[in-house]
Write a protein that binds this DNA or RNA. Structure first.
Lengths: 235, 235
DNA sequence: ATACTTGTGTGTCCGTCGGACACTGGGTGT
DNA sequence: ACACCCAGTGTCCGACGGACACACAAGTAT
């Protein structure tokens, strides 16, 4: 079954030293080429033929190493996200650690603007991706949040990263910075008075798609919950 | 230019009563058929031929009414999201109003599970979609947040809706509820101890993908900021 | 009544996509 | 010397979005 194969390639032991590996083509080389294409021309340009062409090989040769395009994308993601960080050395408790985690995550996603597009839809999550989650959930141990809450908190945070990054590269909800909509907003200012006024009062301000704002709001919200838990337990 | 056409169809006056309109095929009928397909079989099944087939018509006939598939999708979205709500009647100030807004938004997005998939990537935002944003931004007037912050807040909230909804229908980061990953997590519990422990402590709990959790955290976070603004201004 | 125009739907074609399948040619183990 | 194995090739398929020329009806001008 395809999904089993995919999971096997992602999760199985990648140690097959039995074969001497006289391979010109390897999964890693393929993934690297695909990432090059995606970085340079976006996820839409990642086709089997494009990737194969970059390796001077037929597209069908790729299928000797990956079972499907979905698996290729999965391998791309695993390769791109890199090893999850160890945050234990970051001082100051959960909040600075989560900030560090979010910054690292954001850096990675900025290096590979196709990650939002590649990680939407049904797919098998790879170990490194889970590792990133693990490292954030671990930060929240001992904060008074229960297991589900810890996972929800990390989901909330990583979702925020995905959203801001999607907008930055593609324009999911490009209310700002995209002049086409800005013009439309101005033309229809009677229809959208609150938006128009809000947009007016931020003209020229350096936009980061609400990255810092959302991050601080989420962390503040978590802190509120933790304090409530503390006082509740102490009571 | 294609994007101009798209914007025209979305934003232009749809009143062309000059022609008597003896049309069997209309943009609205096409959009309705496309939404039927998407609701039933997902966004991946929305192709020009599928939609045309449902209307007993050739796919090329559709191109008389929409300029491209991208425009068809844009019209689908506008039709699916519906008219934005008027929240002025909701009592209790900004917070209950935002909750109401989020609930309405979530209902809509649940009725059309393909919306997350359709609204990713570069595209022109339609007036109704902007209307939803308008109505949320309006709720935040007079809360002490400046224009950019109001927009960031709404972006944060709508991003959360999108994320939870994506996961519910497609499995963007399905750490939970997807038994395949659950099994993997159990097999690799030594590698992901924090995640494993967090998952253990929520076994059987009714999952909503962190919807309520994230919503409350975001609103708490906004409240913290507003209080800080208030006391700062009073000081 | 007839010819012209306008606009709606059709038929055919193209390039690209993911992928199935049969093949080939250069190693390696016996 | 031999057969086997397997990475890479070549060809083919159906589905996709879309260009383009055409058919054909209805309305208008003459």
């Amino acid at each position: 079954m395809a999904s089993e194969d995919r999971a096997d390639l992602l999760w199985g032991s990648r140690e097959k030293p039995a074969r001497p590996a006289r391979l010109a083509l390897t999964v890693d080389r393929i993934a690297a080429a695909a990432i090059e294409v995606a970085d340079a021309e976006g996820m839409a340009s990642v086709s089997m033929q494009q990737v194969a062409g970059r390796l001077d090989v037929t597209k069908m040769a790729l299928y000797r190493h990956v079972a499907s395009k979905a698996e290729l994308v999965a391998v791309m993601i695993e390769s791109a996200v890199g090893e999850p960080p160890d945050l234990r050395a970051v001082p100051g408790g959960w909040r600075p650690r989560l900030v560090r985690w979010a910054d690292l995550m954001r850096e990675t996603w900025q290096r590979h603007p196709w990650l939002p597009a590649a990680t939407t839809g049904e797919r098998v999550t790879g170990p490194r991706e889970v590792g990133w989650t693990e490292s954030a959930v671990a930060v929240l141990e001992g904060t008074g949040l229960d297991g589900g809450e810890r996972m929800d908190a990390v989901f909330l945070l990583s979702g925020h990263i995905r959203n801001t990054q999607s907008v930055a590269t593609a324009g999911t909800q490009p209310w700002t910075a995209q002049k086409q909509l800005r013009t439309i907003l101005h033309e229809h200012r009677d229809r959208f008075p609150a938006l128009h006024e809000a947009a007016q009062s931020t003209n020229g301000a350096p936009r980061d798609n609400g990255w810092e704002f959302g991050l601080n709001r989420i962390l503040d919200g978590l802190e509120v919950l933790m304090r409530a838990r503390d006082s509740g337990a102490a009571r």
